[in-house]
């Protein structure tokens, strides 16, 4: 039963990650790409780690994975914000009327 629930979580995370990689190639607009890449990759990471934690139950292994999850949830938005800020202040502009994406 535990294994089944964990497999379901991992499959959900694989769907998220595949959609994220697809979105990185599908959008022509840089800021759309950075949005898709940031939140779908974080969601995929959370679901995969939740699946592994469910598989192992309460143990030291799960505690270490929980520490990794906390670090990634804190740091990943900072990195994405830094890339977006660097692109905006570096002079990379897109059109205001461009609604095609």
């Amino acid at each position: 039963m535990k294994i089944l629930i964990s497999n379901i979580f991992i499959i959900i995370s694989l769907v998220f990650i595949t959609l994220g990689v697809f979105g990185v190639f599908r959008y022509k607009n840089f800021y759309s790409r950075i949005l898709i890449a940031s939140y779908i990759d974080t969601a995929g990471f959370l679901f995969m780690m939740a699946g592994i934690i469910i598989r192992f139950g309460v143990s030291w292994f799960s505690a270490k994975i929980l520490l990794i999850v906390v670090i990634v949830v804190l740091i990943n938005p900072v990195v994405t914000h830094s890339i977006g800020r660097s692109a905006y202040h570096g002079g990379y502009r897109i059109d205001k009327e461009d609604n095609s994406d």
Binding site: K28, R93, I94, D95, E97, D98
Partner: peptide
């Protein structure tokens, strides 16, 4: 023509 400059040059 500023409306399509991004597409033309970058993409």
């Amino acid at each position: 023509k500023q409306d399509t400059h991004h597409r033309e040059h970058v993409s």
